[in-house]
Simulated scan of single mutants.
Amino acid sequence: MQFDENEPQAVREERFAAERAARRARRKAAKLDSRDAHLGAAILVVALTLLG
């Protein structure tokens, strides 16, 4: 978030709301990607257990 002291409060609030929505969307997309990471970690643990 960038802060411009000359920016009207209403415009600033709208911009901040849009930035929060964008961050929320990125977090939601990252959650879906973490499922694949957990699956990969589980496969790695099983493989290492079998090799050990």
Rank of each mutant, 00 (worst) to 15 (best):
residue 11 V to K: 11
residue 32 L to D: 11
residue 14 E to F: 04
residue 7 E to Q: 12
residue 25 A to W: 06
residue 44 L to M: 02
residue 35 R to L: 07
residue 26 R to A: 15
residue 19 E to K: 11
residue 51 L to C: 02
residue 33 D to V: 03
residue 48 L to Y: 00
residue 23 R to G: 09
residue 35 R to F: 03
residue 7 E to I: 03
residue 16 F to V: 15
residue 36 D to M: 04
residue 26 R to N: 12
residue 48 L to H: 00
residue 1 M to A: 08
residue 30 A to E: 11
residue 6 N to Q: 13
residue 52 G to T: 02
residue 43 I to W: 01
residue 14 E to R: 11
residue 9 Q to D: 15
residue 49 T to G: 03
residue 18 A to L: 13
residue 11 V to F: 04
residue 25 A to Q: 14
residue 44 L to Y: 01
residue 31 K to N: 10
residue 44 L to S: 08
residue 50 L to W: 01
residue 10 A to P: 09
residue 45 V to S: 03
residue 40 G to Q: 05
residue 46 V to D: 04
residue 15 R to P: 08
residue 44 L to F: 02
residue 31 K to C: 07
residue 21 A to C: 06
residue 2 Q to Y: 07
residue 42 A to Y: 04
residue 47 A to H: 01
residue 44 L to G: 04
residue 44 L to I: 01
residue 52 G to W: 01
residue 27 R to G: 10
residue 3 F to A: 09
residue 8 P to L: 10
residue 1 M to R: 08
residue 21 A to K: 11
residue 36 D to I: 05
residue 24 R to S: 15
residue 52 G to H: 01
residue 19 E to L: 13
residue 21 A to D: 15
residue 42 A to I: 03
residue 30 A to C: 05
residue 23 R to Y: 11
residue 6 N to C: 05
residue 32 L to K: 12
residue 8 P to Y: 07
residue 16 F to M: 15
residue 48 L to N: 02
residue 12 R to G: 05
residue 46 V to Q: 02
residue 38 H to Q: 06
residue 37 A to H: 06
residue 45 V to Q: 01
residue 6 N to I: 03
residue 23 R to H: 12
residue 22 A to Y: 08
residue 24 R to W: 06
residue 40 G to L: 03
residue 21 A to M: 09
residue 7 E to Y: 03
residue 28 K to L: 14
residue 7 E to V: 02
residue 26 R to T: 12
residue 52 G to D: 00
residue 12 R to S: 12
residue 7 E to M: 11
residue 40 G to N: 07
residue 13 E to K: 09
residue 23 R to L: 15
residue 50 L to V: 04
residue 32 L to M: 07
residue 10 A to L: 13
residue 21 A to H: 08
residue 8 P to K: 08
residue 1 M to D: 08
residue 13 E to I: 11
residue 52 G to V: 02
residue 23 R to M: 14
residue 20 R to G: 12
residue 45 V to R: 01
residue 32 L to S: 10
residue 38 H to F: 04
residue 30 A to N: 10
residue 15 R to C: 05
residue 39 L to W: 05
residue 47 A to K: 01
residue 29 A to T: 06
residue 23 R to I: 13
residue 32 L to E: 13
residue 36 D to L: 03
residue 39 L to I: 09
residue 29 A to W: 07
residue 48 L to P: 00
residue 14 E to I: 06
residue 48 L to E: 00
residue 11 V to H: 06
residue 24 R to V: 14
residue 40 G to T: 04
residue 20 R to H: 13
residue 16 F to A: 14
residue 34 S to F: 03
residue 46 V to T: 03
residue 14 E to A: 13
residue 9 Q to I: 14
residue 52 G to A: 05
residue 46 V to N: 00
residue 11 V to W: 05
residue 42 A to R: 07
residue 29 A to D: 10
residue 45 V to A: 05
residue 25 A to M: 12
residue 4 D to C: 08
residue 37 A to E: 11
residue 47 A to R: 01
residue 3 F to M: 09
residue 20 R to L: 15
residue 32 L to V: 08
residue 20 R to M: 15
residue 27 R to K: 13
residue 38 H to R: 06
residue 35 R to P: 00
residue 39 L to Y: 05
residue 27 R to S: 13
residue 14 E to L: 11
residue 46 V to K: 01
residue 4 D to S: 10
